[in-house]
Amino acid sequence: MIKDITQSEATEDGITDKQIDALIAKHQTDRNGVIDILEAIQASYGYLPPHALRIVAKKMNRSLVDIYGVATFYQAFSLRPKGKHRIVVCLGTACHVRGAPAIVEEFERQLGIKAGETTPDMKYTLETVNCLGACALGPIVVVDERYYSKVIPTQVRDIINNSHSGDRDTADSHQQQKTIGEAVPS
């Protein structure tokens, strides 16, 4: 459901008030629907545009700082546009001792960005997470809902290329496949 990510710079104008209004109307319940509304906006646009937060605050009759506080509190919300492919590296204790930091470093080196950042061409966002709950399979890398287990640094290039081409075949026999809600390859 990621639309117009490449036009993110122009979203201030690209996202119409009407679209946001519709999302608000759908989820608003007294004053408790803030998270639902933000989730809906995030699902539609891939991130929370500042413009949208202002509209939400106005519609909900709340101060902007309330909405902003919620939006920055939860990890699930992002105020910056995300890349087309989301690469998540687990840095939980088990993955950490099995060498996840080296995986992150390798991704950072290959993509030329730091963890938490997005490549300038808006193709990749690199994130770390504290545990994915599959510690026996660590280190784990998730790319667009697809899980790679027992990753070693030499696989990093393949993982990036796989996600890039949209080619779902891979040499890794350990991997678990999950193909829910995949982004459509370009």
Partner: peptide, 25 residues
């Protein structure tokens, strides 16, 4: 006024205006 509030969480928690911009409120 409600111009300032808590932002982020954990060790990044801070107090300030939304987007660090001059507040309208």
């Amino acid at each position: 006024a409600k111009a300032i509030g808590f932002r982020n969480r954990g060790e990044n928690r801070s107090i300030g205006t939304p987007f660090d911009m001059k507040s309208e409120e």
